[in-house]
Design a protein around this nucleic acid. Structure first.
Lengths: 301, 301
DNA sequence: GTAATAGTGTCTTTCAGACAGTATGAC
DNA sequence: GTCATACTGTCTGAAAGACACTATTAC
């Protein structure tokens, strides 16, 4: 075998916060294209991969603690243009970090928060999804599936991913939808859909973000991760709108209250908060729930 | 910064099959210690990480297709003794492969199937768990938590992981339990529990296996992955015992039947199979279920 | 008073667990 | 017939969705 050039290992981090009912992702700009915080893995410095991710977050976002979880490792050929130009393979371990939006020293370091639906406008059922889906995406999918010889495979994927023909919409299938649109864009008649339907990101960072959104939407249902994104004390309305922002869908308020309150995942603080209407009770996360239920999350379907 | 030695990237694969109501994992032997199939990532050869994993599986197990899923990437310092001896950092991307036990050309290549509970005897509620847990593990955990200054943290972890003091047993928390026992073993009085409580594996492969078991136990509930492990036609009893083997617990047969049959995840083949009692109807997986339900799995709690 | 938000009670349907009992084969 | 396994029906309680309703603030 020829002499092997070793792969280069790096870290990409998806840092998520929620502000004003909008989920935000932390980005920097490369030639005007948003990219995720990232850096090289340094074996001499980093005892573990997670510590490497923490170092990157600390250096680039001033973020020193908080929830951090390994997402997925990305290593496709040519995912980094430096490889196309004769460089080595760049493999990246993706991490998901959750934080309060104020815990990040953002502007000082050249970073910016962006509503994540800017990159995936079809993922927000509260906003523009219906029109985008019906007017643009569904017709494109129909043409794409009709054009294929392996018709059944494409059609089935599109149907499951986008809930066509009566199939249910699964809000966790963010990556599957992105990949349908991505492939569709590479075919004739695809009209470069993926580029016009939402904002692009540097390298494969949009794919990494799609992976993160899907993971977070799943995890919220069986792990108490929402609480990493809101303050220590919160009203049930705040909790609800945070969940709605992440899930990209609206929830029925009375049922949400009941589900959350009865699940034991929160407890009253005793304090109230002023609103423009009746003042709201505030709540806090109740860690003991972890010992009481095997899958303590927020019940959304 | 000193000149950086780049990390070396590899693949470790957990290949799972089920035979005779026992979940099996494919291993090879290094100095008598079982290890997982593994190999170096070769950028020149492998267009993607998944294809690298498939190459490893093909070379080492003669396994050319089937279900394959990325698990987790392991990169802790000193996870490979070659690093301790001055070598570079060895980072490994773990993969989970599911297969019928006959699809692997096992003996010819020096591999062997092992019941995975051999490495985690406390994970099987159908077998020896109750005694091991009550007589050995729980007393060790009590001493371990009592000895800690940050009592609350350790005690809480042990309580949640092992279902102490009325907390529920979560059969997905395989890694959390393994890590409790691992840490416990490094403290005085730990009696090297992790080494005596189950068989050791090479490197950190036991941790990788724990990760795989936990992932599979979770996934079975919302994705039709069991069907990768059994033949195309199967009786409901076979399906049940396969699920029980993976989950490490017994299920109530009449309810299991009803749940599975009504969920639309299977359909009758029309053929029957002889048993030692009344002949059983055989069923097959029904792929259309993917388009009907967002989370088509086997309903177990 | 009205508007706005917070919060409660109840009805209905669905679903999961428990259990009793029947069906069909081998011997 | 007995034994073993396969399979069905029904009861019960828990949980989830829909909806009508009340409470407390600002103005």
């Amino acid at each position: 075998m020829a002499e092997e050039i070793p792969a280069r290992l790096g870290i990409d981090a998806v840092v998520v916060g929620v502000c004003d009912e909008r989920p935000q992702v932390l980005t920097f700009a490369t030639d005007g294209r948003p990219r995720l915080p990232s850096g090289a893995f340094a074996p001499a410095l980093d005892r573990t991969l997670e510590l490497a991710a923490r170092r990157v977050l600390s250096d680039q976002a001033g973020l020193r603690e908080g929830y951090l979880e390994q997402l997925y490792t990305f290593g496709d050929r040519h995912r980094d243009p430096r490889e196309v130009a004769g460089g080595p393979r760049f493999v990246s371990v993706g991490y998901l970090a959750l934080t309060g939006i104020d815990d990040v020293n953002c502007a000082a370091l050249g970073g910016a928060w962006h509503d994540w639906y800017r990159f995936f406008p079809w993922e927000d059922a509260r906003g523009s999804r219906p029109e985008i889906l019906d007017r643009i995406i569904v017709p494109l999918l129909r043409r794409w599936t009709a054009a294929a010889r392996d018709d059944a495979g494409r059609a089935f994927r599109a149907r499951v991913a986008f809930g066509l023909d009566g199939a249910p919409w699964n809000n966790e299938a963010v990556l599957e939808r992105y990949e349908c649109l991505y492939e569709l864009s590479t075919t004739s008649g695809g009209a470069d859909a993926i580029a016009t339907l939402g904002e692009a990101m540097d390298l494969d960072h949009r794919r990494i973000l799609a992976t993160a959104i899907g993971r977070l939407r799943g995890k919220i249902k069986y792990r108490p991760v929402v609480f990493e994104l809101i303050g220590e004390a919160f009203t049930l309305s705040e909790l609800q709108s945070t969940v709605e922002a992440l899930a990209g869908m609206e929830l029925h308020a009375p049922n949400f209250r009941r589900l959350v309150a009865e699940s034991g995942i929160v407890e009253r603080t005793g304090a109230q908060r002023r609103t423009s209407g009746r003042p709201a009770e505030t709540y806090r996360f109740r860690p003991d729930v972890l010992a009481e239920r095997p899958d303590p999350g927020i019940g959304i379907r």
